[in-house]
């Protein structure tokens, strides 16, 4: 990995975190409505895995979806505008935090129904197999998704049809406030994948290198063997499930323990230890990202709300 790439990853992780911190602030000011699910703590998953994709690979995820949009390459100003419900938002103000998509970048969106997007990812992969391309689908989901019927039917069908899907479970230890061991009869997600003919691999997903490496191998395997693959990313969300989460279900000590393994901190330490970058270079990136986010907020604030006439647009293609 060359210095430029590593600093680029660092920048992406900081961009995601700064975006999320700004969203939290705007939510508390009442400028963002609805539900807001932050990705802070899980940055290494999106950054490590999506940097391993080919340009023609597809992305789809659940409602903790800001990072995947950023990694798809969507300008944060269009994402911030969506947060604020503006006409310039990536989903024209119709989707909100949980429903960001950028089809021009093969990002098929965030979805609010737990597990509901997993069959969509399978279908997107089916279309690629049908067309005979070498594209794969990176289908992300939380650990909570693995307990719903959608997950099991989708993995089974992907296995039966040998579809090019990489199922990526972001196991952040809790489905809302319920710990994995209180919600799942088996302790690991890879055990579930085994039932559908996928070997699966657990990944230390606080470490962006581990994530990148595992994803690259899995995608290679898909393209070689034309069969689905499965990764369980062991990660942690530092914030609550969504804004307003009372956090009664876990101790401060537990959170602090995970925060010692902050994915950005791990990359930072690597860069310094290996003398790949200086503190000044990283501070410089932090500052640039801060400005990028401020510019995005300004763009969003200055953008108009959707015209009321747009209410009836896009219910159907070729509107009736």
């Amino acid at each position: 990995m060359d210095k430029e790439t590593l600093l680029h990853w660092y920048r992406q992780m900081v961009l995601i975190r700064t975006f999320e911190q700004k969203c939290s602030e705007l939510y508390q000011q009442g400028k963002i409505g609805g539900f807001l699910h932050l990705y802070i703590g899980q940055e290494a998953v999106a950054v490590g895995s999506i940097n391993a994709r080919q340009e023609n690979d597809h992305l789809i995820t659940a409602y903790r979806d800001h990072a995947h949009a950023i990694m798809a390459g969507t300008d944060v100003k269009y994402l911030m505008a969506e947060m604020l419900g503006k006409a310039t938002g990536i989903s024209k103000g119709k989707g909100g935090s949980m429903h960001l998509a950028d089809v021009s970048k093969n990002y098929w969106g965030g979805y609010g129904i737990v597990g509901g997007h997993v069959p969509l990812g399978v279908g997107i992969a089916l279309a690629e197999q049908y067309k005979g391309t070498d594209s794969a689908v990176l289908c992300y989901m939380g650990d909570g998704s693995t307990n719903i019927g959608y997950f099991h039917e989708a993995l089974n069908l992907a296995g039966v049809w040998d579809l090019p899907v990489l199922f990526i479970v972001e196991n952040n230890q809790y489905g809302m406030g319920t710990a994995v061991e209180r919600a799942s009869a088996v302790k690991t997600m890879v055990e579930k994948a085994a039932a559908y003919g996928m070997k699966g691999k657990q990944v230390d997903a606080m470490n962006v290198f581990e994530v990148h490496n595992a994803t690259q191998k899995a995608l290679q395997a898909i393209r070689k063997g034309k069969a689905p693959q499965f990764l369980e990313m062991i990660t942690y969300r530092f914030e609550g499930h969504s804004m307003g989460d009372p956090l009664r279900y876990r101790s401060k000590e537990e959170v602090h323990k995970w925060q010692e393994n902050d994915p950005i901190g791990i990359l930072e330490k690597h860069l310094l230890d290996e003398k790949e970058a200086t503190q000044e270079e990283m501070d410089q990136i932090d500052e640039e990202v801060k400005q990028e986010i401020e510019a995005a907020v300004q763009f969003a604030e200055e953008s108009p709300f959707p015209a009321l006439e747009s209410l009836f647009e896009d219910v159907y293609a070729n509107d009736l």
Binding site: H58, W108, G116, H117, V118, P119, L120, G121, V122, G123, I124, A125, L126, A127, E128, Y130, K131, G149, Y150, E153, A154, N156, L157, V160
Partner: peptide, 20 residues
């Protein structure tokens, strides 16, 4: 397909979104 209505419904939609 297997007897799996949830994925029949969803995968057909996904394939349609992606051009089929």
């Amino acid at each position: 397909t297997p007897i799996s209505e949830m994925v029949i419904g969803g995968a057909a939609a996904g394939a349609a979104m992606n051009g089929l």
